[in-house]
């Protein structure tokens, strides 16, 4: 009886210290996340005017949403563009980073150097640099001139013309070629994902591969039967991370537009409405896709 009481006391004490430990998060979350989130939700239904000593909100119903989707000439087009771009880029990033991490997990000379180079994008693709990278005309013109000096030999170019002129499923192929052309962007965006996959690959014990090989399993089979199931949870992590990362990139057209409307035009109502539309769509995509992926994920325990 007394022992039980003491144990309860310990559990209670641990619960209290748990709350003390996470209290910075709780305070920050309530003050800087919940409140602004609710406020921006409310503001998206209002006309907001900034004045001395405060701002005034007039409830206008769904006018802002109407403006964002049907009155603004470019927003809905940008929205569709960005979301399709996000979809195929995220797929490409997942495939690419998984493939690269498989290679980097092997033993070969100079592995440390190659790893260092592949993680370099974690630095290079952040913040302001990616912004400048995307509209750097000079470097792309240099690239063009190099390509031109080689006589325009481009295997993908030829393949593209052949496949497109023969008319074999031209739409998906076009997307595929877009991805291949944008492989640099994909490589830039997959630094963290490679680290995550590598960390997963390193937790797989070598003995399971050896056992499989003795049983007559080829490398290809053990990739599907051992590697995939073991690190399948990481696909979910990487997928969510990739999508979120894509939304926050500063070269994202929708985000640029939202920021421009809020800071430059001070139209906080409209910008909140736009960001909520975008946010809800992205949340829906994350929710649906993670649900599908989690059906396929294999958990050890």
């Amino acid at each position: 009886m007394a022992r039980k009481k003491k144990r309860q006391g310990l559990a209670k004490r641990k619960a209290i210290s748990g709350y003390i430990f996470i209290s910075p998060f709780i305070i920050g979350f309530l003050a800087f996340m919940v409140k602004p989130l609710l406020q921006s939700l409310y503001m998206s239904f209002c006309k907001v005017t900034v004045q001395l000593g405060g701002f005034v909100t007039d409830f206008t119903g769904i006018t802002n949403y109407n403006d964002a989707l049907f009155v603004d000439i470019s927003f809905n087009r940008q929205l569709v563009d960005e979301i399709t771009r996000m979809a195929y880029n995220s797929l490409a990033i997942i495939v690419f980073s998984f493939f690269v991490s498989l290679i980097l997990n092997q033993d070969f000379k100079g592995r440390g150097l190659v790893r260092a180079i592949f993680f370099l994008p974690v630095i290079l693709s952040s913040g302001v640099i990616i912004n400048i990278e995307t509209n750097n005309n000079l470097l792309s013109s240099i690239a063009d001139s190099i390509e031109g000096s080689l006589g325009g030999v481009s295997i993908t170019g030829y393949l593209e013309t052949i496949l497109v002129t023969t008319g074999v499923a031209s739409k998906p192929l076009q997307t595929l070629f877009n991805v291949v052309d944008g492989i640099y962007d994909v490589a830039l965006a997959s630094g963290i994902q490679i680290i995550i996959f590598l960390s997963g690959l390193q937790t797989i014990p070598k003995s399971s591969y050896e056992a499989a090989a003795i049983e007559g399993c080829t490398a290809w089979e053990s990739l599907w039967k051992i590697t995939f199931p073991t690190i399948s949870p990481l696909f979910l992590v990487c997928w969510v991370y990739t999508i979120v990362d894509f939304c926050m990139r500063s070269d994202n057209a929708v985000m640029t537009k939202i920021q421009q409307i809020s800071i430059a035009q001070l139209n906080f109502g409209l910008s909140s409405a736009m960001s909520w539309i975008y946010f809800v769509i992205v949340m829906a995509i994350i929710g649906i896709t993670s649900f599908i992926i989690s059906k396929w994920v294999y958990y050890d325990d």
Binding site: L37, M248, M255, S262, S275, Y278
Partner: peptide
Amino acid sequence: VIIVPPQTISSSLWLHFYF
């Protein structure tokens, strides 16, 4: 917090600190 893009709450955060 990981998922919400900071841009969504940026304008109201800005107002929050402005006043």
